[in-house]
Design a protein around this nucleic acid. Sequence first.
DNA 1: TTTTAACACGAAAACGTTTTCGTGAGTACC
DNA 2: GGTACTCACGAAAACGTTTTCGTGTTAAAA
Lengths: 349, 349
Amino acid sequence: MKRKITLKQIARELDVSISTVSKALRNSVEISDDTKQKVQAFAKLYNYRPNNIALSLKNRKTNTIGIIIPEIVHHFFSKVIRGVELVANTRGYNVIVGLSNESFSKEVINMEMLANGSIDGFILSISKETLQQQDYHHFNETMNQGMPIVMFDRVVSDINCDKVIVDDLDGSKKAVSKLVENGCKSIALITTKDYVSVGKLRTQGYMDALNDHKLIPKSELILKIDDSLDYEVHLDALENEIEQLFKANKNIDGVFAVNELYALSAMKVARKLGLDIPNDLQVIGFTDGVLSKHATPSLTTVSQHAQKMGEQAANLLIDKLEKGLNEDEEEHFNTIVINTELIERASTK
Amino acid sequence: MKRKITLKQIARELDVSISTVSKALRNSVEISDDTKQKVQAFAKLYNYRPNNIALSLKNRKTNTIGIIIPEIVHHFFSKVIRGVELVANTRGYNVIVGLSNESFSKEVINMEMLANGSIDGFILSISKETLQQQDYHHFNETMNQGMPIVMFDRVVSDINCDKVIVDDLDGSKKAVSKLVENGCKSIALITTKDYVSVGKLRTQGYMDALNDHKLIPKSELILKIDDSLDYEVHLDALENEIEQLFKANKNIDGVFAVNELYALSAMKVARKLGLDIPNDLQVIGFTDGVLSKHATPSLTTVSQHAQKMGEQAANLLIDKLEKGLNEDEEEHFNTIVINTELIERASTK
DNA sequence: TTTTAACACGAAAACGTTTTCGTGAGTACC
DNA sequence: GGTACTCACGAAAACGTTTTCGTGTTAAAA
């Protein structure tokens, strides 16, 4: 087991100075062809590679970006990571992953760990707890130290940074409009509590679509789920709430759900109540997930293009990192809006 | 926008030496209480944190582990990552993620990028292409340079390193036995080509279970899918193959599939052919995925405990990293076998 | 008063690079 | 033969730490 070889060892071995080795390997004109050949051959033989850590220290640049997400076992987020990784890799960066697990303190700790030199910038989506507490000091502190942040999906307007978001409002409008155009008269909305910004926007889109079609939104058709409890576990509770909704409003003929699980649960409950999808009830979800595609019937959804979001976020960040920091120049922040797409499957007519 | 503060700056500001600052912050007895207080107060005020990169260089230890997986948009792998992250974080490590995308060259490049000082050790699952080519030089080279590797799930016996695997054989045996005990007489197997080790083992488990129950395996009941093409895209092709299988063997009353998608496709085809699940046909899959739980009918599966695999792998790696390398002592490699668990749902009686 | 010991701190090396600057040897020119 | 270059290379600094080993000052002991 031989340790990795260093410039110093090569230098000693060939009886030249470290500087000479370094220059020879970088093909400097300062070095004679003879020496270059000798050094390069030796380096190749011993499979020399510069130590990244030393380079990072010297260059004050790690070529690594940190991504912090609330949860990794989730199609949306893992697709975003894939996008980030793809771009990062082709542009010569590595990706460090941190999970906040929807917790404020874990988010803070994770960011602090990485902000101390390990990475050049952040890509992140805010945890639910942070959104609830509205405590954003860690973001601002990080940015004040000159470390750029790109937020995606879950963002807040209070913070000035680059952002990549989905056009939640328009996506929801498209979905609900589709239901209306397909003949639905009484469309239910299954959404989350308002502190999750995307939930709020999607609710707004639902409202707007109804208004556009001269339909009057009825509060009894809107079900706001408290998703602070892990709904993967409390599936029963979720289905129960939905069942109440259906039973209290027998005329429901359309459902728009702000995520995949809510939509699937709605379909499950409907089936249980003897409703036929899509004839008695049409359902649309909002998601990029895999469940929709393989559900029975397969679920019409608003696609978020998660991977594209990741790619854009990575490009935004790396562009900023490499822009060369012309001092004093007023910093400018971008917000990229990713268009949604309605993917029609079997749960709508 | 102030840069992060360093020891040098604190030293200059307080008119002491760098060494004094460093020692004061680490509460050394060499430093007077007066000075300590002064330094610590100042450091706290300016929120000083040691630079990780400098520490890594000095200590020749990055406290970062690299994880290389074939694909991140996959429940199994993202659950493993979650397990790794969990353990890594509580033990003071960060996690860098690399995706091989099932490609040999990407696997090699990714490993080389990380092996040059960025991380202390690897956790990885081998890409399909690598398994096919059986070219493992990059693993051996990495280990020769003193960087430990822990492989999980997809492993090969040719390589000497720590491993965490699922008891594929036993899991399959349990599943197929269950089908037999539930009255199935003619059990089909939907598996992959043999070069994926887990596919091979699961096939073996199927055979063993049949033999145990004095049933004779029939080759026409075994469908080996070529999964080199992305089955998420070529869903039709997959379903077609399965349909042929069913049509050629009308007596099939049980299916064991080595992954979730195959199982779901089998159910879909069966439904199309008018078979009732579980009365006419019982199906069991092998997976940790989310599809099984929400499928209709929900799918009985062999659970792999992916997160636990990640945790064990991380512990194995960190243990090795921190064991202190008593020279000459013969290195010992562990293989941890994770037990599977049969989760019974609605696709079996 | 001299020796010794404790105390409080600083200088410097080390981790592995890259890069700037200096310098000795050789060559060409006048 | 003296001056001016070019050529080929080395020394040293810098990135930010930690740690070992001095060292000067003061107080206690002889």
